[in-house]
Design a protein around this nucleic acid. Structure first.
Length: 199
DNA sequence: AATCCAATCAACCGCACTTAA
DNA sequence: TTTAAGTGCGGTTGATTGGAT
């Protein structure tokens, strides 16, 4: 038969959360803190699986979440970090305070992707869609050159953050190898008009 | 007024990765 | 060292909403 679900409990709620469930989850985490997601639902008296509780907390109930539309600045940051990191939504979210990976991913797929396409930019490679125009490339490269420090700093900080934790030492090299090699070759960002906003 | 259709986004699923035993 | 349990990520789905016909 089908693969067993993450929680084999038969009477487990799914779908949208009710106010009561939210309140229970918030109250429980206020007292006991985050984590131990698997045992949390039972302890908190919730008929949910741990994954569902974690997701609800991380993406919606956490008190440090920003609400409302993305600002121009946030959007530009997302585009830049996506150009740098690809679809590493949690890494991108780590650089945009108060925003979650899910939120950023949704926003990318519904708004930014479309916007880039309409500008003739490939949302995957961040390069011009059509025949590679030397002029277009030059402009894109120039706009990166306008603020390369910010991007470098982001990449560097990422490494440092991981490096501080001795447990992740082993993985660090691997990850760095995955993310950094083509940094300078493939990086493209949107038109120069935005660089003024960043400075 | 009724129906269709596209956009949005909260939530789910499967799997890769990490940690504990 | 191996293995099992736990956690987090990214892709995807589906209910809802709002605009168009």
């Amino acid at each position: 038969m089908g693969r067993s679900p993450c929680c084999e409990k038969a009477h487990t709620n799914k779908g949208a959360w009710t106010k009561e469930e939210d309140d229970r989850l918030i109250a429980y985490i206020k007292v006991h803190g985050e984590g131990s997601w698997r045992s949390l639902p039972k302890a908190a008296g919730l008929l949910r699986c741990g994954k569902s509780c974690r997701l609800r907390w991380i993406n919606y109930l956490r008190p440090d979440l920003k609400r409302g539309n993305f600002t121009e600045e946030e959007e530009e940051l997302i585009i830049k970090f996506h150009g740098l990191l690809g679809n590493k939504w949690s890494l991108i979210a780590g650089r945009i305070p108060g925003r979650t990976d899910n939120e950023i991913k949704n926003y990318w797929n519904t708004h930014i992707k479309r916007k880039l396409l309409s500008r003739g930019i490939d949302p995957v490679t961040h390069r011009p869609l059509n025949a590679v125009s030397a002029a277009g490339d030059a402009a894109a490269i120039a706009s990166v050159a306008a603020n390369p420090k910010q991007l470098e700093a982001a990449a560097e900080e990422e490494k440092i953050t991981k490096g501080i934790d001795p447990k992740t030492d082993k993985n660090q090299g691997q990850e760095a190898r995955e993310e950094c090699p083509d940094l300078n070759l493939e990086l493209r960002i949107s038109p120069p008009q935005y660089t003024s906003l960043i400075h």
